[in-house]
Design a protein around this nucleic acid. Structure first.
Lengths: 255, 255
DNA sequence: CGAACGATTGATTTTCATCAAGACCGGTGG
DNA sequence: CCACCGGTCTTGATGAAAATCAATCGTTCG
């Protein structure tokens, strides 16, 4: 990916599904401002399957939103350990972790052929100053990423393998459904990637999926999964039965 | 915490160490604007040890910055599992996860007597629109939180107990040093809290600390720790020696 | 076709959680 | 002042969950 694919940036491009434009719409920009915004966007830059949108450590060029396809975001440390921090679907913002240091802290790789729309951070922040609703929406995106990460930390920190996998399936299904696809039938990432995302070994992922298949809660066909019994799946996501929860050390819920 | 301590909001309060003011300074507000900003701040609201700044689920009132003391942030799920997502020191922003939904997703508890300064989200965002440098700084805070969480996820997802603890000690030491205290001698949270933060049991934390003490890398006295050999500690943070790292599945570093 | 990649399944090992008991405080109240 | 008690730390013994190791098989793609 030293020589990425060419960048298209034609003001006349139609980009109806562009995540960035959806953003403008939800920020109630009028037609004129939306057009101005549109002109700042680098539209649908293609990212071929298995290539990098960017590597960790490289300088931040622009912020992107996934336009089509499917990508993963990965962090690593010195001695080769790595962790997938997120799977990215159309509409998802991509480089929010790079704003602080102006360098990418994670690598982003296309799991399948994808495309992204981008805007420079400077221009984005200018728009934020001009349009409060737009700014607020941006803040919600950042905050939303923090929430996703916190939930993920809960999975990684305290949940058992089965629970992590079940919750992953449910959450993945939700996200796909939110984009207008079937909530019960979809394509999964490869086991290796699910395993990395969940902090498990790929064998464990395979075994747990097999176990769900044997109980006829899901059906599997290559990369495709069908959720046959959502309720049973949700049941499995709670370890209520198996493991009596220890007395709370904190009051989590409001009084 | 249904009846929190009284809130002081006197414009004349001196609050020289206020995290929010430091923020204004680094955003190059002039004296007049800084004073205006100052007037929007609820200064040094005290949070008694073991009480909540807020519970999860409660509506977001204002965004806070830790002024003094030490707090922890906790998320939980339905069946009583909980995970400490962060330890908060003076200068740290607190409720960044609540912006998206306007409700707190995590509870925040004072580990020792603490105080916070606050500002309403609406007013904060107004200032952001007015002062681009201020806005940018806010974005850096949000992005920084995302980075912290990603690093934390790497710990939880792929690292062994010893490595998690060693890295926690090193990172904790750094953060304390950044606030002008000794990097080699400081007070630790109780084992239970360290354990929750690291996704381990408290016994494991105890054992690992004992092991480090026996090797004379650290010394322990009640809650106080002294790091006697930083280099040896750093050595332990890499499992390079013990466990040959598997071949990378991704190129993490720039080409 | 063969090579590379991924999934599956079983056998074994390792790490860490859990269970349990005792010690060491720090505070409270008789 | 001392006894007691709750909370915390320590340490050992045991067990369980999941990683690792290993072999096989199916698919996909040059």
């Amino acid at each position: 990916m030293t020589n990425g694919p060419p960048i298209t940036n034609q003001a006349n491009d139609k980009c109806p599904n562009c995540g960035l434009l959806a953003w403008a719409q939800s920020s109630q920009l009028d037609a004129h401002d939306a057009a101005r915004f549109n002109n700042l966007i680098t539209h649908h830059r293609p990212i071929e399957k298995n290539t990098y949108l960017h590597h960790a450590g490289s300088p931040l060029e622009s912020l992107h939103v996934v336009h089509s396809g499917f990508l993963k975001s990965i962090i690593g440390n010195e001695d080769g350990k790595e962790q997938i921090t997120g799977f990215l679907m159309p509409g998802d913002p991509v480089e929010l972790d790079a704003i602080a240091s102006k360098r990418h802290q994670s690598g982003v790789i296309a799991v399948e052929d994808s495309s992204v729309c981008g805007i420079s951070l400077v221009q984005l922040e200018q728009l934020c100053c001009e349009f409060p609703a737009f700014q607020h929406h941006f803040h919600q995106l950042l905050s939303g990423e923090i929430n996703h990460d916190h939930r993920h930390m809960l999975w990684l920190g305290v949940m058992h393998a089965e629970e992590r996998i079940v919750r992953f399936l449910l959450s993945f299904s939700e996200r796909i459904a939110a984009r207008g696809y079937s909530a019960t039938q979809f394509k999964l990432p490869k086991h290796q990637d699910i395993a990395s995302y969940l902090g498990l070994s790929l064998e464990t992922v395979s075994r747990e999926l097999t176990s769900l298949r044997k109980d006829e809660i899901i059906a599997l066909d290559h990369y495709y999964i069908q959720i046959k019994n959502v309720d049973a799946l949700k049941q499995r996501s709670s370890s209520f039965e198996k493991r009596r929860s220890p007395p709370h050390t904190h009051d989590i819920l409001p009084p």
